[in-house]
Write a protein that binds this DNA or RNA. Structure first.
Lengths: 99, 99
DNA sequence: TGAACACATGAACATTCGTTCATGTGAGGG
DNA sequence: CCCTCACATGAACGAATGTTCATGTGTTCA
């Protein structure tokens, strides 16, 4: 894997990242994780959605490295993967609040 | 228009914003505008795409207030609408460059 | 006014996406 | 072992998305 990506690859990968952020359900999940890790079931409760739908979205968030999972017995805990996710979330808020 | 939005609305509007950022073509357009305004035709040239396709995407970017347009004679010049667009772009880069 | 240029827009099409429903998997308790 | 709990996954369906092709709009200049 090269250290420097060409413009095409960068925009492609960046687009994939933002595409994952570009869904209301996934953003509500991310939002529910801003204060720390949460058990999968509680996330579903927090966003008032079916467990299955949330699980599908968690899978997408995990594949894109926006969240990470940790198993503890029967439960699985999810948390934001790195600080940039929160940064982007908040910068986006700043943008939509403007004007 | 209220000053404070409820969580649902925020995530909805935020998702719409990121959805617009979540396309390779549009990101390449945004990228081409990082250094300042550019004539529509030159943007199409910069991203090596048909004028029509770029125009459609510019429309979407403009509706979402990511870019703004300025007409000067026959030409139309586009530029990023506010600094948050660039901030989000760069924060996104930081994220995908990590690891 | 009419031709040329720069750009916008509408229809149509293939593709992608998110949800639901049904079922699968893995861990713990009895 | 078998049942239950917590979560994951696959198929399928309707909805949304991005491009192309054809055409429309608006501005300049002869």
């Amino acid at each position: 894997m090269p250290l420097v990506y060409n413009e095409e690859d960068v925009c492609q990968r960046l687009a994939e990242f933002f595409k994952v952020m570009g869904d209301r359900t996934r953003l509500r999940i991310v939002k529910s994780l801003l204060d720390g890790e949460l058990q999968a079931g509680l996330i579903a409760e927090a966003v008032s959605m079916e467990q299955s739908a949330v699980s599908h979205q968690l899978r997408i968030l995990k594949s894109a490295r926006l969240v990470r999972a940790r198993r503890e017995g029967k439960a699985v805990f999810y948390s934001l993967d790195d600080d940039h996710v929160e940064s982007v979330f908040r910068q986006g808020m700043d943008h939509i609040m403007e004007q």
